[in-house]
Structures are given as C-alpha cells and as structure tokens.
Design a binder for these strands. Sequence first.
RNA 1: GGUCCCAUCGUCUAGCGGCCUAGGACGCUGGCCUCUCACGCCGGAGACACGGGUUCGAUUCCCGUUGGGACCA
Length: 478
Amino acid sequence: MSVRVRFAPSPTGALHIGGVRTALFNWLYARHHKGVFILRIEDTDQARSTDESIRIIIDGMKWLGMDWDEGPSVMQDGAVKGYRQTERMDIYREYAERLLKEGKAYRCYCSPEELDARRKEALAAGRPPKYDRKCLNLKAPVPGRTPVIRFLSSDEGTTIVRDLIRGAVSFENRQLDDLIIMRSDGFPTYNFAVVVDDVTMKISHVIRGDDHLNNTPRQVQIYRALGYEPPAFAHLPMILGPDKTKLSKRHGATAVTEYVDLGFLPEALMNYVARLGWSHGDQEIFSVQELIEKFSLENVGKAPSVFNQEKCIWLNHHYIQQADPARLAGLVLELLKKDGVVQEGKEPDGAWMQKLVRILTERSHTLVEMKISAFPFIQDAITVDEKAKTKHLTPEVAPLLSELAAKLKTVEPLTHDNIEKVFSDIVNPRGLKLGKLAQPVRVALTGGTVSPGIFDVIEVMGRDKVVARIEAAVKMIG
RNA sequence: GGUCCCAUCGUCUAGCGGCCUAGGACGCUGGCCUCUCACGCCGGAGACACGGGUUCGAUUCCCGUUGGGACCA
C-alpha cells in the first residue's frame, strides 16, 4: 500500500510547536516510506482563517526544511490557492447529499435554543444529553427554518478505532449522538470535512494529535457510511508546557517564528521536536537523513511530553558547532543588520566575518548570543562595564597596557602566536601570571570580562581598534 | 458530569518477564582543564505513583485506586 499522509492545519494564527511535531511526524513517515506528503488547509472556520496565517505556516515549514508533494500555492499577490477546504464546498455538499439520499443522514430543523432546552431537561432527568432525533422522521421541511444535516449514527454495538500507537480503542456507539455534518450556513463541520477530504485525497495514514482520538469513532462511522474503509490512524501524544497543561502562548515561545527570532537553527528545533514522543534507543542527535531512515511509528510513545527549552538550547549549541562558518556568518550578519549595528552596503568583509564567527561559535548557544558577542568587534565604540573597570583597570596595570599597546603597533603579522609572544614578554620578566594582563586587556577591548581567548580577540579585532582601545583604557585609568 | 487516553529520575527517554544493585540525554552538582566565560573530560545526587493479583520471578502482563490529560457537553 502506498503511503499518502497529510498535515492539515487550521490557518488561524502561528505555526506552533505542536503543529510542527504533527507535520514532522507525517513528513518523516512519508519520506521514510517514499510516500506522498500533502499540506492541506482546514479553513472552514472562515471567521478566524486568514491567508496571512497560511503563509506563516508555509514559511515555517520551509524554514524547517519540510517539503510537500501536494499543497497550496502562494500567488504573486500573496493569495493562497488550492488544497483548502473553502474551495471544496461543493464536494462536501455532494457527499452530504449522497448520505441524505441513502438515508444515512437527515435534515434537522431544531433551533439551538430548543436543543439547549432539551439538553438541560435531559440532564435534569439524569439522561445523557444526546440529540433526541426529533427530526429523524420528519415528512416535510419546517417552514421558516434552514436545516442542518445530521449523520444518523448507529446506537448499538461498538466502534473500534485501530490505532498504530494506541492499539484497538473501542467506543460504545450509544454514546455517540447524531452529529451535525453540515451547518445551516452550508458549511461542513470538522468531522465531516476531514473524512471527505481524507477519502478524496486517498489518505492512507492519519497521523495527528491525540486530541482527535475521541472524534475518531464518529469519523470511522462516516467512512463506512460513505462506503470506504477507514485509513490507518496514529494519534500522537500531546506536547505540554512545564506545568503539564497543553502547550500554549502563556508557556513562552510556542511559535516557530519565535524560535527563529530567538536564534535557533532549524535543524536543532527539528531534532528536538523529533525526540518529543519518539526515540531510537539512546540516540539524541539525528541528522535529517537519520530521522528519515530511523523514524517509525512503532517507536512513538503514548505519554504526553513536556517541552523543555533547556534541552532544545543544548541541541542548538551542538548544531551551531557543526554549522558551516560561512552560513553562520550570513545569519549573524542578518541579525546585526536587523539591529542596525551594520548598515546595508557597509557589510564587513566576508572572510573576516567568518573568522569572527569561528572564535564566537564555541560559547554561543544561540545566534542571538553570537550576535551580541560580535558587537565589540563590529561597533566603533564600546561601553565599559563599571564593575569590570574598577576591578581590572587599576593603576598598576597601566604601564603594562602601555607597553602592550606599543608592542602591538609593530608586531608583524598580527597573529595569535605572535600576540601570545608579546604577552609573554611583558608578563614573564615580572613573574606575573597571564591572567593579570589578559583580564584588563579584555575589559579594555570588549568592555566586559567575558570573551573568546584574548589572543584571538586581538587578532580578529585588528590592530587599529586594539591599540586605540588599550590606549583609551590607559587614559581612563588616569 | 460523560467518554476516551496516559503514568520510569525535575524534564526527554531506554526498557517490549529474568541481562535492572533500572541505561542514556538535558538540567543540577563536585572536580580537572584554564587568560575570563564557555567548550571538553572525570565523578555525584536523582525515577519504576499506590494496592492487589498472574508467575518460580515483575518496571515489564491483568484488575483496581490515585493522579494527569484530551474530547463532548
């Protein structure tokens, strides 16, 4: 059986982590089985759906490197065409008509108020608040009312959902009432639209969040009523926030765009999200290729998992170490431009940017950290931290700094090893430890007490800035 | 409230009856390295929710309790 899977988000806002995980597992499953991955937009909630949201979802997936074989296209003017439910209205109507004709669905004219009243009544009488099928055997339309269409569900026996992750989950049919499949405004309801979509798109495996597990028996019944065998289901456990409730905005960053802004690399986020609910022995680090090779629904767990940003940062650090310096240089440069630290057209030399990035990589957990560490190298002026100044820029180091500045003026070439020699020549005769000179110089050059190795700093910062800043520090001491 | 799902260190997880005095990773922590901060390396604390079964033997199977979650209302 050929694999056809889909990711079907509602375009009502950002692409959040939960959505990414669902998309990722579908994508990995498709790529692993050399199947087809479809992106489909569930925009029947017209009031909340926007093209802007679709574009955000598309951008997010592209950023992560998830490509799809079938899906909507973004036009020149930003409009989104294809693979969206609002373009498929007549298909839903057609299928609903069919059920109606076959006596598997019926029109219902009950108003929301009436339904509500009867529900309360039932509740008060201790009966389950199910729809009472008042309209089931209606002979003629009720004048002045637009009907909804209800699915006639069976009220005996059980419906078994065969789930690749949960096993067989059974539901008593009498618990399920005759759900509305078409609203009075002519729009299909979620449970009906998904089934019609999945049937017409020949979806083989429905991989989605387990918040849909309870909807599944109804959908299974609709599949059968329509004359199709249901696809294979795989309900993924939820991703929770640190307080173990469903991950949401109040838990901090939940949208992919936020992870971009926080300075994450897409491969780090992908690796992290893949390991949420899925594992492959003890392995933590997976390239995209490995994920595709090793991914299997059998190794997806059942328990929900908490999103842990610390671990995601650790992975990001790992991938920053692995990344090509040219790529990192480009990304950091973008951030510097966004901050206005670098002006358009006045970009530093590319080779130099790479040199800079190389000395910053080791201690950067995010691109944003890297960008901040780059400031002293890029900006003309630095601000010297007061505490660092009083601690390290003391009168007794002034002569050492002066001597250093003088010597650095003539060292040729200005390389790590040569600089190290200069430091030794100043420090050794006096019986001082290197740190005695290195820390003050660090403060003089960067304004703070944290930086890459001081010889690297000097080499990359360049003679002019270095000498000027050391001399300025000497003056500062007075 | 009804239905359904879930339950191993703080977190992500390995474990698919004996290999478990429960392994790895993040985080935390002690040390080493060291020009600062990191990185790296070595070590440490830290979990099978509880109670019944089944079995020669349960983290692993079954039932219940408790606790979480989701959906429907």
